[in-house]
């Protein structure tokens, strides 16, 4: 029984319940918006804090310094061997002449210009696979050091470890906030639905008497839950957006003092639309479940 009329009836009832007890609806909506605003703010900060490149790929690199005097053919062989390693995503060859030119560009040392020969080696830069275990990076570096024609190997794993640790902290914080928000929202909606049910006992009794099935009786409460969380999500977006308007100007001024440019950007429209949609579905689901829990079997 899913006619348009029954859905229209349910929507009408949901709106009437919201307006019949505006205090309950507003309080539930405000509490839910607070619960949603916390993870939304955390997600917004995390997105702005991570540079674009790191969002696309999070992978360390190993620099393999080829022994001087190694022929190009041998370097090509070395590169091919590197590329065959499963933990290596790609290999870039930085020729010694290019390396010297780059050094000249970046350095103002006059001594470099006076060098009679290029002291720099060829370098093979191996980009590891995304989110590889730091221990695997170190093991690979140790293996490469034993290869012939390899003079030295550099693997800066320390920053990678720090980045992974920071990532784990961010994920843990977001997870805790997400769980807290989900729990908070669930409790808020259960409370709101129970209040509405206690005020609608007569209606529920009549509906059962006239042959309404559980879906017909529960649907207005599900719609009310969806409505509550939809409005709450919109309010949370408005709150975080408003907070960013307040925070961004002084933050930009502070960053300028350090010669940097910082701006915390809101999630994009598609992500926000998904958040609202998810909130609506979650609200409907929780409220329907809460209603069924509140109903005693007849």
């Amino acid at each position: 029984m899913t006619t348009l009329a029954s859905r229209g009836y349910a929507l009408g009832r949901a709106l009437r319940m919201a307006t019949a007890q505006p205090g309950v609806f507003l309080l539930s909506m405000l509490l839910a918006s607070l619960a949603l605003a916390l993870p939304l703010a955390a997600a917004t900060l995390a997105r702005s804090a991570l540079p674009q490149s790191e969002r696309v790929a999070l992978a360390p690199e190993i620099s393999v310094f080829v022994a001087l005097g190694t022929s190009n053919a041998e370097i090509k062989n070395l590169r091919a061997r590197l590329e065959q390693l499963p933990q290596v995503a790609s290999v870039r060859w930085l020729g010694r002449d290019d390396a010297l030119a780059q050094l000249n560009e970046r350095s103002a040392l006059a001594a470099l210009a006076e060098l009679k020969s290029n002291p720099l080696p060829d370098v093979l830069i191996a980009r590891m696979t995304n989110r590889i275990d730091p221990v695997a990076v170190e093991t690979t570096a140790a293996t490469l050091r034993k290869w012939s024609h390899v003079d030295a190997v550099s693997a800066d794993v320390a920053w990678y470890r720090k980045l992974l640790a920071a990532g784990r902290v961010i994920i843990a914080v977001a997870l805790v906030l997400g769980i807290a928000a989900a729990l908070g929202i669930t409790l808020i909606l259960i409370g709101a639905v129970r209040l509405q049910v206690s005020g609608s006992i007569d209606e529920i009794r009549v509906l059962r008497l006239v042959g309404a099935d559980v879906a017909f009786i529960a649907r207005p409460y599900a719609y009310l839950g969806a409505l509550t969380l939809t409005v709450a999500a919109a309010a949370a977006i408005a709150a975080v957006s408003g907070a960013l308007r307040l925070v961004n100007p002084p933050l930009a001024e502070l960053a300028q003092l350090y010669g940097a440019e910082i701006r915390i950007a809101m999630l994009d429209a598609r992500e926000l639309a998904l958040l609202v949609l998810f909130a609506a579905l979650l609200g409907g689901f929780i409220a329907a479940a809460a209603f069924r829990g509140a109903m005693r079997p007849t």
Binding site: M1, T2, T3, L4, A5, S6, G8, Y9, V206, L207, V210, G211, A212, D213, F216
Partner: peptide, 14 residues
């Protein structure tokens, strides 16, 4: 109208 709506009739028919 309530029983008719609960039985799945359209609003017009109910």
């Amino acid at each position: 109208m309530l029983p008719a709506l609960a039985a799945g009739l359209s609003a017009h028919e109910a």
